[in-house]
Design a protein around this nucleic acid. Structure first.
Ligand SMILES: [Zn+2]
Ligand SMILES: [Zn+2]
Ligand SMILES: [Zn+2]
Ligand SMILES: [Zn+2]
Lengths: 139, 139
DNA sequence: GAAACATGTGTTATAATATTACATAAGTCA
DNA sequence: TGACTTATGTAATATTATAACACATGTTTC
């Protein structure tokens, strides 16, 4: 898993704005939602968002949720350490828990070993109802 | 994890055609690639593909690879048993290994327990270079 | 400083993926 | 049969992502 080694980086204006939006959102955000949010700041084209996101993701400051085609700010200081992260997503309230511990990296290592793959990127996403939403929606 | 309980289902014509294409491809296939493949059989619109895929996925006969926006035929008899499946994807030769054992379901159960989520769907995808490709591309 | 290079930006257009809406047909069961 | 569900056909549209090009800015090297 390639990861940025940098601990402190100077973000460009666009990157900072996108990261701030992501943090403020506190939820998975689509690229076009971010674009709309940032139009008042002069953003006009999707590429401005996608380019900033690419950097932020490389730096471990944001993550892409593959199953939602959406993005979210990293909830840790930064995920540089391992890059082995799992996302647990409530489909009702859209809360996302970002889990990044040894159980994840161990699982991925073991999976890579078993399948003889030289892993470069992983995506673990678990959908369902969080504790609160699960209590409410007892259909 | 909700799963079909059916063991033998009669597929409709469209569903059979899409499944056959997926199996023949033996690789992740995009919806529009499937559409092109099936035009000679009368397919004309993306919805015909997406609708068939939805059924096939519900039946456990096909899977969606979230990180590729693509689909693949189930490599087991069917994944009805657990629905806890991991995909290991070579980014060079596009080979996909579908892993479905206790290590996967245990990991997911544990993750769900830790995060207090009532899980309904999961997606585990590991990218990298398979054994063969990794040997060749020693840059 | 000038040249060479890498990185970031702005903008337009376009590609790739997925869904809505509506009309029709076919299968299932009382 | 009627009532109902499921599958289909088709057109239009929505959503997500990238390509191509021009320009600007920053950094290194001489
Ligand atoms: Zn993170
Ligand atoms: Zn919730
Ligand atoms: Zn399967
Ligand atoms: Zn390979």
């Amino acid at each position: 898993m390639k990861k940025s080694v940098v601990t402190k980086v100077k973000l460009t204006r666009n990157q900072s704005l996108v990261l701030d939006s992501l943090i403020k959102a506190g939820q998975p955000s689509g690229a076009y939602a971010l674009l709309d949010t940032l139009r008042p700041h002069g953003f006009k084209a999707p590429l401005q968002i996608y380019r900033a996101l690419e950097q932020l993701i490389d730096l471990g400051l944001a993550h892409r949720l593959e199953s939602l085609n959406a993005f979210i700010a990293c909830s840790h200081v930064s995920c540089e350490s391992s890059g082995a992260t799992a996302f647990v997503i409530c489909d009702k309230c859209e809360t996302v828990q970002e889990i990044c511990d040894e159980s994840i990296s161990n699982f991925l290592s073991s999976l890579a070993r078993k399948t003889k793959i030289r892993a470069s990127k992983s995506s673990i996403e678990l959908h369902g109802l969080c504790n609160g939403c699960s209590a409410v929606s007892h259909s």
